[in-house]
Amino acid sequence: MFKAKIRSEVLKEVIDVIATQVDEVKFTITTSGINAKAVDPAHVAMVDITLDKGAFEEFKAKDTEMGINIEKLREVVKLTKSGETIAMELDEDHNRLVLSLGNITRNMSLVDTAGMSDPKIPGLNLAAKVTLELDELRKGLRAAEPVADHIALIADENNFELRADGDTDFSSLTLVKDQLVELSCKEKQRSLFSLDYFLNMIKAVSSAQNITLEFGNDFPVSMDFTFADSKGKVSFLLAPRIEND
């Protein structure tokens, strides 16, 4: 059983975030909220998103699952304005989700979840932790975009740097500890990432103010942020690039 009401901008962010990885997703629904985990087809990136029941206007549920085609859900959300409310009810007998928005009712058939296994989340111990303003990160990525197709994240005790080394050009976003919300890193850490993948994920974030990056030498980076008054949590994970000699 699942019956809820949600503000359209919250649902939109959920959709944007999941759409960075997959077209179809399985939501795991419990009495305390909903969760989805999705890994992109190349197994390079994944997302783990949780929406606490407090993020909903109304929320009633028992443990269940539902498979959703993300683009279909996006079409429905597009019919609404920010601030409007969308009502959702799972119709298990007919295997569909019934959405109501204003005077519109939309029945959406569900995707079979039998073949959708939960992606395995690697257990990682990442040595650097940096929290910064999302706008700063965006600016650094924008500066890197014309320079190279990959970026390096570098942190030590006092600094965080996002740099791009191209064949001829170079760009760097450097922030000292005071300019960061949080920096914890004992030894210098450096890892390289595909700028395409990175941008694709960051572009999906709309409402968060701060973002926390955790990474380690030639290890993946996790990017965590909250939205919907901290009732929604997102964790992206991106595998590194490793330069061959």
Partner: peptide, 16 residues
């Protein structure tokens, strides 16, 4: 090609 270089250097999450 950048495509080949990125396939050679890009790790997947399964590697961790």
């Amino acid at each position: 090609s950048e495509f080949v270089r990125s396939i050679l250097s890009q790790r997947t999450l399964d590697d961790f």
